[in-house]
Design a protein around this nucleic acid. Sequence first.
RNA 1: GGGCCUGUGGCUUAGCCUGGACAUAGCGCCGGGCUUCUAACCCGGAUGCCGGGGGUUCAAAUCCCCCCAGGCCCGCCA
Length: 554
Amino acid sequence: MLHDMYKTIETAIKETTGVPDALLTDGGEHADLATTIAFALAKQKKQAPVMIAQDLAVELSRLPALTGITVEAKGPYINFIFGNAYVSEAIKEAVKPGYGNLPGKPTRVVLEHTSANPNGPLHVGHIRNSIIGDTLARAFRKAGYPLEVQYYVNDMGRQIAIVAWGFDNLDSKQLENEKEDAHIARIYIAANQEIQKDESITQQVNTLMQLIENGDPATVKKFRREVSRCLDGFKVTMKNLNVAHDRFVWESDFIRNGNTERIINKLKRLPQARDEETLALDLSESGFENKYVLRRSDGTSVYAARDLAFHAWKGANFDRVIDVLGADHKLIGAQLQCTMKLMGEKVPEIVHFEFVSLPEGSMSTRAGKFVSADDLITEIRKRAFDEVTARRPELDEETRRSIAQSVGLAAIRYDIVKVSPEKSTVFDWKEALDFERQSGPYIQYSHARACSILGKAGTFSECFDLETKQEIALAKKIAQFPMAIDNVVSELRPHILAIYARELADTFNCFYHDEPVLKSEGKVRDRRLTLVKAAQNTLKESLETLGIDAIRTM
RNA sequence: GGGCCUGUGGCUUAGCCUGGACAUAGCGCCGGGCUUCUAACCCGGAUGCCGGGGGUUCAAAUCCCCCCAGGCCCGCCA
């Protein structure tokens, strides 16, 4: 809708003036859309921008294509204000189930996210990856793309060897009520402490790594067992965060199925290959200083080689390959992209996000310095339950627990997704546990209020002829939703949706505060209820795309 | 030392790619609003050399250069 209007007006400006760029932008508080084209034409026409704007506005307003759009010059700006037809059409769409679904596309997309090393529980840094990834996944599906979400299991790294050593050599019994991933972390941390004390352990770990690379059955079994247990823990955490993967892809499979060897043979033939003691690529002509090592001198593969095999496999099976990775992967991500291009393989798109740290410094699983996602979830549910109990003492405990769970989820997911990924953040308990401010629960509350109004309204006949300023403002905000979804997938920036949902809630809150709905009568009541229904539906779709429960009462 | 990212009122933050109309919102602060559709809400007020300095432009938070501060990275680790 909004997109159509943009195109129509853009074409009209281009055809009328002959310029290649209509310089059309959001009109903010002045208009729905506006152009600064008069500035650009000033030099060429040797006329003041104000004069040009005035003449052009008159000319544009006469065009049949722009019927129903108010065109007016305000100084050097030309403003476009959409009429009632636009508003009515938008609300007609917005009351339908699935509002915001974009037309289906043939492009098959594979999206990888989270992929944390299975050596300890997911912490508040990892879940930034999960939440950005999962929100993108939901937006892609809403935008009509067939999508598969994958988790890449790094099951043959040094840290897994350290875990395996710990289980063999330390007191490694699982404690009562200890979650699998927390158990693994405890052993991993203890093993690292032992390594600090006794350097000879490193040799034993190296031996384990050689055994796993050679496919020694007992070692493979041992590694698989602990990695699987850790993943079981991750799955519980992710379920609690409403995050889902379609497939877990194991790194070691790319050794076993020969893909890594095949990719190494292909890489050897590149002019950039340096097959000396090690096999490495010289990517200096692409601006990378260090050599990109693929095979060690002992003949075993390096992570990079397996990663290339993994990405080649993804590229062969999907049309678009997208990875969500932390800022620490920027360099290796760029090297991966560069190498894929040199090989003529599909180049993955990478979404990077900056680090989450603690007030006392960086997080470290090895040092046991982290806030686990499980602890955050437990704490936030407790807080949410107290809050619900204080606000709604009349509800039974089960209902309050259920609301608290949804509110807690909303608080966590929104708190993380609302920030632009390129900003590094410091985890703050006080902010994470806040349900007011610009929070997920705030948006849920707007939705619940809308549901409450609709519940009390009974039946009404839909009416799309809006009138007051507040009605129109809300309708126009609702109309922006499909474009917000489109922007998220085209820019790969899920925080756009978070900001949109909050603004929609703001607009709806102001609307129902200022305009009586249930107490109005006749057509006014009908059209306001229709608008509430459209707002409720749009809030619901927004929340669900953010992976947040659109609860009907709270 | 080199590369990438960030720097917007006391705190958090949008806008920056695609330059234009008084820089977005929240928290906190000050002052209002619950016998009226759930106050997880709404309304009003104070608070900004948009890190600093140059440049490009009719016009710069936005583009270019330099500097400063913080984060991340520069392994035959993953």
